[in-house]
Design a protein around this nucleic acid. Structure first.
Lengths: 239, 239
DNA sequence: GTTTTGAATTTTGTATACAGAATATTGATC
DNA sequence: GATCAATATTCTGTATACAAAATTCAAAAC
């Protein structure tokens, strides 16, 4: 989501100047990452002063960031009780993934039409890098590239509102989908689906691409659904 | 979007207690309305102290509300220059309406499946009320009911993420779509399209409903596109 | 032993204060 | 008269202060 980083080697200060967000923006990015990557557990109350000390800032910009996160659907604001890391029910996760599926399928129509060969080449490069990460067993790197590919695919549709909504929903689901590639066979299947995706894109076949994405995200939900079932069992276990 | 108001006559204080949001929430609602209804012109800088005095609050909750509005895409935050009422290009409006169309068409599938007769009856009642408003020439009332109908239709799909995204996008477009019913013939056409929509819903025919919604929102864009063309001419005129 | 009540503590919600950046204004120079 | 520079003012960004609500903890009542 952050596209400010450039590849310039020197000019450190100049680049910093440009990318230097307001404190509020900086906190927003960091908190979002913490929630989305699972550093903060769902249902956990966010203690403002604690986070403030951790970040070395005052409560004002932190609270502003929390409001933004609430609008993004990553935290819930309970009156007089502050911010709570949002919990998602299985249904909410399913509904959100289905919505993401719809958005990506919508994107395919324009994407196949508008994408330049260079655009597709870049996505193919990401895909090949992802395959390498897969073979190396580097899940974190794999998953980062995986999200990038979906984001880039949607970006090809050249619809800013679509991209923004997609990014927000994808952030909400990041935690789950990461866990959704848990078992080796799940991971292998997801990889195979991606291979098909990239081929359909290279063929500029929107119907096929849409169909593959449909399968990919339906399967994604199934993988996550297993996870929810397991979690419930686990919860019972700990009683 | 605000569903807290009830129709109780007495018990004023109790109801107020319940619906009493935080200042931040109150300001957010009021500012959103002001932007969405066109009281604040796009491109206009929002002077914090001025709004604070107008609302009788301090800058802290106002700034929190502005952050939320930025996440909703209604204002833009320019570093060191504060909040600006967001301007939309013709392309952004078109892309957003097309996205809304996609979301509503997606909703129809589950809506026709899940909706109870009572649900559909309620929407029919809204539609009839809207027709009365149309015949009475009450554009504001008509338009409020119009939005309600679309919101309720999407709600029938029983997908919270979908409803939230749809509401956000609809809010962004409210100003334009209101203006989009300008001429009598535009208004009549929009009304006719809605009549077809409600019939397709009552027939629980998702394909027909989807098709009608597609036409309705494509036409909506065309009406708004005319508006953009006019505005451009008008801008030239005033030079 | 459990429940309840009430003070002590923590935490949130809002207002205010202050520093730095942006904008407006005034005066000087060409 | 126009343009530029320097100062004054305004406005934003952040920190801090204070009040009210919630939570905790302990003691008392059952």
């Amino acid at each position: 989501m952050d596209v400010t980083a450039s590849s310039s080697k020197n000019g450190e200060s100049a680049r910093d100047r440009i990318s230097r967000q307001s404190l509020h923006g900086e906190i927003l990015t960091r908190l979002r990452t913490m929630i989305v990557e699972g550093d903060l557990d769902p249902g956990m109350r966010i203690n403002e002063v604690q986070i403030c000390e951790q970040f070395g800032v005052s409560r004002t910009p932190l609270r502003e960031a929390l409001r933004s996160l609430a609008s993004e659907g990553l935290v819930e604001l309970v009156p007089s009780r502050g911010a709570v890391v949002r919990e998602f029910t299985a249904k909410e996760v399913r509904d959100t993934i289905v919505l993401i599926r719809t958005l990506e399928q919508f994107a395919t129509v324009n994407a196949c039409d508008l994408a330049s060969d260079a655009d597709i080449g870049e996505i193919r490069a990401l895909h090949d890098a992802m395959e390498k990460a897969y073979e190396a067993g580097d899940r974190r790197h794999y998953y980062g590239l995986n999200q990038d590919i979906h984001t880039r695919l949607v970006a090809l549709a050249d619809n800013a509102a679509l991209s923004q909504v997609h990014a927000t929903l994808q952030a909400r689901m990041k935690r789950f989908r990461y866990a959704g590639h848990a078992g080796p066979e799940n991971w292998a299947r997801a990889m195979a689906e991606h291979e098909e995706m990239i081929e359909a894109l290279e063929a500029r076949d929107p119907d096929r691409l849409s169909s593959v994405i449909g399968q990919h995200l339906t399967a994604a939900w199934e993988r996550v659904a297993d996870l929810f079932a397991e979690t419930e069992d686990g919860a019972k276990e700990t009683h």
